[in-house]
């Protein structure tokens, strides 16, 4: 959030310079994709801390659009998927130490986050450029991936896959450039946040020696920087 506020502030300062030649913003449908940076406990990798999520920054993409009426207001919709890798190395080292084995192998798929958000746009159109300010809210369905731990080829246990749905929101700003009458490119930055409450279970865990959690309820939040290709009408 700290990183996006200066960006939003500078955009708002920039807005009055556009007002002398404003037109009505055009509605659009857009495919977008880009980088998703995460912060907080979800991105921490401290094996001893049960709040650590071991997630690394990843990617986000999806489809979004907005329908405008009048000079500024619009209503937008966004369907997206974010993907975050798992830092398996600190987990492998922690399990190796806890089980006092020569070798531990940890295998994991990625965190997945599917978001369905809607909300208002407030936009300023200036010739081929449109500045979009938006606040969207809705829900996200997050997936905690299955984690497989192999101890010295003697024993394998898994932390099972889990899904959770929770309230989600995002605030952001972006610029659209219409390079053709109906086509545009966009550059956007959004702060996005959700806090899923995962129930965590294990299979074939016989001895309580390694890291074990029964739930995971931490904020998944950060800044998304995306590029988009839009059809404007």
């Amino acid at each position: 959030m700290k990183r996006i506020l200066p960006f939003l502030f500078s955009l708002i300062l920039f807005v009055p310079t556009l007002t002398f030649a404003q037109t009505n913003p055009r509605s659009f449908v857009e495919v977008f994709g880009g980088w998703s940076g995460i912060s907080g406990n979800f991105s921490q990798s401290n094996y001893a801390n049960p709040r650590s999520g071991f997630a690394r920054s990843g990617s986000v993409g999806g489809i979004q659009g907005a329908w405008f009426w009048g000079k500024h207001f619009g209503l937008g919709l966004s369907i997206s998927q974010a993907d975050y890798g798992v830092r398996t190395q600190p987990l492998a080292e922690g399990y190796r130490e806890d089980f006092d084995v020569d070798q531990a192998i940890v295998t994991s798929k990625h965190y997945r986050l599917h978001s369905f958000l809607a909300g208002p746009y407030y936009s300023f159109a200036f010739n081929k450029f449109t500045l979009d300010l938006r606040g969207l809210a809705g829900f996200s369905t997050a997936t905690l991936p299955l984690l497989r731990v192999a101890l010295e080829d003697e024993s394998v246990f898994t932390q099972n896959k889990s899904t959770a749905t929770s309230f989600a929101y995002q605030l952001g700003a972006g610029v659209r450039w219409a390079f053709l009458p109906h086509f545009g490119l966009s550059l956007r930055a959004d702060y996005a946040s959700t806090k899923p409450d995962f129930s965590v279970s294990y299979t074939n865990i016989n001895n309580t020696s390694g890291r074990m959690i029964s739930s995971y309820h931490e904020k998944i939040s950060g800044v998304n920087g995306t590029l988009g290709l839009s059809y404007q009408f």
Partner: peptide
């Protein structure tokens, strides 16, 4: 146009889920 945009989004949304693996070195 909408078909192209739809295809690109579906491609992204169902893209393969990568797997990561780490081996804690032998001590």
């Amino acid at each position: 146009i909408l078909s192209v945009l739809g295809f690109l989004s579906v491609f992204f949304l169902v893209s393969c889920n990568k797997e990561e693996q780490s081996v804690a070195p032998t001590i």
